[in-house]
Nucleic acid binder design. Sequence first.
DNA 1: GATGAATGAGAGTTCATTCAT
DNA 2: TATGAATGAACTCTCATTCAT
Lengths: 196, 196, 196, 196
Amino acid sequence: MARNQKQNMIIDAALEVFREKGYANARMADISNRAGVSYGLVYHYFGSKEVLFELIVEDWWNELYSVMEHEKSSKIHVRQKLINIIDFFLTTYGNRPNLISIFVSEVCRSSVYHTTEGLAKFLNFFSLCEEIMAEGQNKGVLRNDVGAHHLSYIFYGAIETFISVMVLGKEPLTDKRKERASGAILGVFMDGAGAR
Amino acid sequence: MARNQKQNMIIDAALEVFREKGYANARMADISNRAGVSYGLVYHYFGSKEVLFELIVEDWWNELYSVMEHEKSSKIHVRQKLINIIDFFLTTYGNRPNLISIFVSEVCRSSVYHTTEGLAKFLNFFSLCEEIMAEGQNKGVLRNDVGAHHLSYIFYGAIETFISVMVLGKEPLTDKRKERASGAILGVFMDGAGAR
Amino acid sequence: MARNQKQNMIIDAALEVFREKGYANARMADISNRAGVSYGLVYHYFGSKEVLFELIVEDWWNELYSVMEHEKSSKIHVRQKLINIIDFFLTTYGNRPNLISIFVSEVCRSSVYHTTEGLAKFLNFFSLCEEIMAEGQNKGVLRNDVGAHHLSYIFYGAIETFISVMVLGKEPLTDKRKERASGAILGVFMDGAGAR
Amino acid sequence: MARNQKQNMIIDAALEVFREKGYANARMADISNRAGVSYGLVYHYFGSKEVLFELIVEDWWNELYSVMEHEKSSKIHVRQKLINIIDFFLTTYGNRPNLISIFVSEVCRSSVYHTTEGLAKFLNFFSLCEEIMAEGQNKGVLRNDVGAHHLSYIFYGAIETFISVMVLGKEPLTDKRKERASGAILGVFMDGAGAR
DNA sequence: GATGAATGAGAGTTCATTCAT
DNA sequence: TATGAATGAACTCTCATTCAT
């Protein structure tokens, strides 16, 4: 699945255009223009708008699953696993803002994705997340009186909202901001917002 | 702005169709058919697809602001305020799932909403949320070492993810489920997911 | 065929709107709004957009024919007849600019009027004009080496262009301007533009 | 701006359809059908109905200006210049009746053209015409007691009416008829319709 | 007479996709 | 591989006309 230069240029252009306009409003002509290639070449390589989009999304899901799988089977402390997951999302926002922006805007919530297949992707992610939470519960690191899946929702929801706000505000991610965000998410998730 | 029966039928149909297909894929013909009125009547009353959508969204924002304002100026305990906000979202999911679904899918994240105006709506909401958090900090109910705006993100993120999962799974909201969700969100937000 | 007040208000509004937007772009709603009456009343009285327009145009043709007939059978000098005709057009521009503007813009040239019926209206006008020219030729007032119908074209063409320019420039018609235009048209038509 | 074959076919079809139905009643589907191309191709090349129309009109104005400029700066006798201008219009009617018909019906008088820009086109034409008339006055060929712009109106009005009548009557232009029309226009314009 | 809600055919335009070169 | 001309289904919006009250 190695891609040549032009294919990569098209993918990059697609990331930009999908992010800027959203899937529905992105035109194939926009993508080919942005990539500096001809109209037909996009079809030559990717077949259709949907396939192109799915490819991008699929890659992202696979990458995300891979990270989650890795953390799941890792021997480190659960707390560190959560830190790593938060870090993965924030780092991706920093390095590939278009990608994470599309994920947050066009995938997570898009009605287009409210399909059995779309749902399965999510459930899979949450299920991996849940396993880590369950591990934490088993090891006495996380509370037992709240379902592991509920813990997943709260944990992921915090990450997603931080990213959404940055996406909306088009905020660049400085190291300092990243650290603060990371600290806030982990701190509140683990210890709560309540004063001690 | 009292609406007559047909206007309400159109609004209800629009809520269904926008929810099912998303804004971009919703056809005005779908809406008029669903409402059982003629094509032209939708235009007669609402002028355009965009206006119809904005009307729905605007109403929702206003209702949300109204609730937030009310909680903000209320004299009750901050903890209760948070309970009320969670309850408002969950109750709305129960009563008007189409509305909250559109909000979560088509508004919060839609690229279409990544405009100055769209951003302003959000910032306004978060700013109201933040004031409540700040009140909690001042009263010693909430921790001070995390910014009030960050607390807002985590709090709202938790709510939104619960709703998103229910929307995706098309889960009906039983009283029991509602109570559990509410308890989980508040519990983890206030006291953390960490074991005691 | 006496019209009541509302009917007249509608006719006046129609004159304004047809002049401003042209027949094709005039909306019945524009007319009813301008007239300050309800939508349906225009239909109640006039049946359709086309009928309303035809009524206005028909009235104008009849008035024009009447003037031409009168001049034709009048015993005055042919030169005076031409002066009267010029004066009729210029006066109408002064008093009812909407009417003459519609005539010049929407009737004379409109493709919509390129029908057998539309053509007949014109031929009838030119035929009345031609008879006056022929009378002038018979009485030795006008030259015989150019066909009477050709004289009609040149004579009417001069009038129409003056009016068109005023319509385009939205020029008000002062007495002085009217006199000069009238003098120029008659002078050049009778004696030519060539220096003596 | 060299045009390929299909573009020319579309332009030709547009000339026919605009002439037959007028701008407002011409459908893009008519044009594409007439041209024997698909619906989309018209948009591919010309973008919109308005642009297509403007292109045709713009070309004509430019051609007309070019002829007028040429005559203006030519060293020939003013009388000959007028003959050439008349001939240009009549020849165009003979060769491209659709074009001249559209000009006379849809441009000169169309309410759509009663804009600042539309007016400017006309004024420019009349101003070129006027300069030739002024030259005639300076050289003692044309009378001085009538303004040069008024002479323009009468001269052009005569030409336009001849053409309009031919357009309305769908008359073909034989050489003989052309000669007679030309002779009549020039003769009456220069020497008047009055008997000697 | 008078109103304006209601209808729906019709037109312009977009844009994903195909295909000949 | 690479191009971009060509296609046409699909969709939004307009507005003349009808009709119940």
